[in-house]
Structures are given as structure tokens and as C-alpha cells.
Design a protein around this nucleic acid. Structure first.
Lengths: 187, 187
DNA sequence: CTTCTTTCTTGACTAAAGTCAAGGGTTGCT
DNA sequence: AGCAACCCTTGACTTTAGTCAAGAAAGAAG
């Protein structure tokens, strides 16, 4: 599984043999069973994750109702830095998960030994940021129906892995509305 | 104006005299008049901006209509890295602007001379990311009315600087709806 | 001050999402 | 097999946003 990470990193920057060894020995790779919570509301997040296998759901609880705001699947990073304040959200493993886990100590240690890794981190972060800003813009501009169609196109796998009521929430609507949108489109 | 940037950076990390000199001499600070476009759709973005004074609006054009998706004001960064593909959005100065402008060459030059600056960049980027993810989540979970009330609280200055129809768009609704929401709340 | 333009509000109507309640389907458990 | 839990859909009704059109209000320009 370390292979996956190294392959991913080498898409962006040269990975020296020393760095590769360090990554393999860092013990970043972890496994979690379906149903496990990587994080619960009230806790302070100190770890961040990079999903290698499986699907993780981020959700809040608003008025006793779960509100799903993100799904993280293969090759996606879960931004996990809170600024010392407790989180208000949950990270739930919807499937058995394999992930690379980072924490501040490990990171600063690795960044010091391998500055290129910090550079990589910054570049990846900027690119994620750009993607996220785009997504947010598109979400604002689109109707619920358009959002549904876009998701069908961009992440069809989600519809095989995740219940529709969580997808509805992710689209910012109620399950009944999603059901009617689907019916409307079917005709 | 360079003072502002240095002050901002030193909130996060030590700024050595050498770094301070380098920043002051880098010529990053620029001014733009109200009405100027920092970026237009179709162009490829290579610069990124940090607003020191004024308000910049980001908008798309969808079905011949302008759709505002962000306002950037004092001490906010405008993420500007596109991956070689032309942008689909505009960056318009709603007021006279003073901004720090970065470009890849200057950045990699500075990062090489002052690695701490790249570290700062990564940390700031991560924190922006976290903020942005939170905002997106809240947007998804809130009704238009709740979004309006939240914006009133979090960025009251916008209502003094920006026409309501652009704010409506920013909230993901039509100007008529915003008008009715305001009326509803007034009572 | 007058004119022109842009912005904001209102009204009447349509379309779509929210709410509440019920029923069918599936899955998983014992 | 039978029960329970969860998920998805439907129906009837309410609420709210979208649309189109018109007019009032506020700003900018001559």
C-alpha cells in the first residue's frame, strides 16, 4: 500500500530513494473497519488522512439530523486541521478503510528531513484549494437538479456505495426531493 | 503597505531581517483602480493576490447572467492557480485595490532563499482550506434565509460596499428572493 | 436640476423544495 | 421464517424560491 502513496507523490515531484525508504518506514498506513469513526464531534482533530481504499463520510448533526457534507474516496485527502477548537463534525468509515495518516510531529519531522516533501504538500494543497473553490462556485450556481446530474457524471461510483439519503444531504436537499428529481428525469 | 504583509506573516512565523528586506524589495505590492479586472474568463491565471485594501469580486457568467461566487476583502488571499486550463471566471475590483501579487517565478525564488516562507505558505494554505471546507458545509446545510443572517453577522461590511443583487447571487438566490427574505425578517 | 441608468422592491403567477404521514422493499439478525 | 431496522418512494399540502413585468428609489452624468 505504501506503493500507492509513493506513486502518487512521484506524479508531482522526484522521490529520492532515501525519501522512499523514510515513507515506507514511517508507519503512516493504517486500517479501519467499516463503521469506525476517524473523528467525532467534540474532539480536537490532530490527524489528517489520505484515503487509499474505501469511502469516508463527513457529516454534521443539525437539529438531531445527520447532514452529510463530503465523501472522501480513493486518492482523496481529508483536510483535518482544526485550530485548537473542537470539531463539530464526524468522519465515519462507510467501508473498510486503508489510509495514510499524518500528524503534526511526524509531518514536521519529515518536512525537516525532506524539504521537498513540504514543497509537495504546499503544491498539492494549493491545487486542492483551487478544486474546492471551483466546486463551491458550481454548487452555488446550480439548481438541485443540476447538482444531481453533475454528481452522476463526476462521481458515478458514489451511487453504488452510498445510500441516497446521504447523497441528498450532500446535494443540499431532502431525500424526498431527490426522489422526485430522479423521477422527473426518468421520463 | 509592505508593513501590513510583514505584520501578517509574523503572526505565524518569525520574520528575519533578511526576509523582511527581501519582501520589501520584491515589488509585490500593486495598485489597481476600481473597475479593473485582475482576471477575465478565457485567460490563464498565473498570478495570485493577497488583498491589502479594497474589495474584489469573483464571478462567472452563466446563461448571460453574472453569478458572483466570492468577495475578497482586506487580508484575504485570492487562490489563483489554475492547472494550465483557461479560467471561466472574472476577478473585478469593486473598489480601488492595493494587493500583494505573487507569481510562480518570484515564489520559487523566494521559497528557495527562505524555506520558512514556503512553510508559512503551506500552513496558511491548510488553514484557508479548513475554513473553506467549513464554509461550504455550512452553506449546504443552511437555508437561503439562514445564509443571509449568517453573512450579516460574519461580514456586515459587505452590505455597505456591495450591491444587494451581487450578494443575492453570492447566497445562491435571485435578487427578488433576497428582497423578500429581508422583508420577511424586518417584521 | 434634469435625465439616464442601475438597483431595489412589489405583485401575480409558476415551479420546486420542505413537511408530514404512510406504505412497500430490502437487509440483516435471531 | 419472522421480525426489526433502515431505506426509498408516493401523496397531499405548505412554504419558499423562480419568473416576468412594472414601478419606485437612489446614483451618476450632463
Amino acid at each position: 500500500m505504501e506503493d500507492e502513496i509513493i506513486k502518487y507523490i512521484s506524479n508531482y515531484t522526484e522521490v529520492s530513494p532515501e525519501l522512499e525508504t523514510a515513507i515506507r518506514q514511517s508507519g503512516m498506513i493504517r486500517q479501519y473497519p467499516k463503521g469506525h469513526f476517524l473523528l467525532e464531534a467534540g474532539q480536537i482533530s490532530i490527524e489528517c488522512f489520505f484515503v487509499l481504499k474505501g469511502c469516508v463520510r463527513r457529516f454534521y448533526i443539525k437539529d438531531t439530523e445527520e447532514r452529510t457534507t463530503d465523501f472522501y474516496t480513493e486518492m482523496q485527502a481529508i483536510p483535518g486541521i482544526s485550530k485548537g477548537t473542537p470539531n463539530e463534525y464526524y468522519l465515519e468509515c462507510l467501508e473498510d478503510i486503508i489510509a495514510a495518516v499524518g500528524n503534526p510531529e511526524l509531518e514536521s519531522d519529515m518536512f525537516q528531513k525532506f524539504p521537498i516533501l513540504e514543497s509537495f504538500s504546499r503544491v498539492i494543497g494549493e491545487s486542492m484549494m483551487t478544486t474546492y473553490v471551483e466546486e463551491f462556485s458550481e454548487f452555488k450556481m446550480a439548481s438541485p437538479e443540476e447538482r444531481y446530474l453533475k454528481l452522476l457524471e463526476s462521481r458515478p461510483d458514489l451511487f453504488q456505495r452510498v445510500p441516497l439519503n446521504q447523497i441528498a444531504s450532500y446535494l443540499g436537499i431532502k431525500p424526498e426531493s431527490l426522489s422526485r428529481i430522479r423521477k422527473r428525469i426518468m421520463k
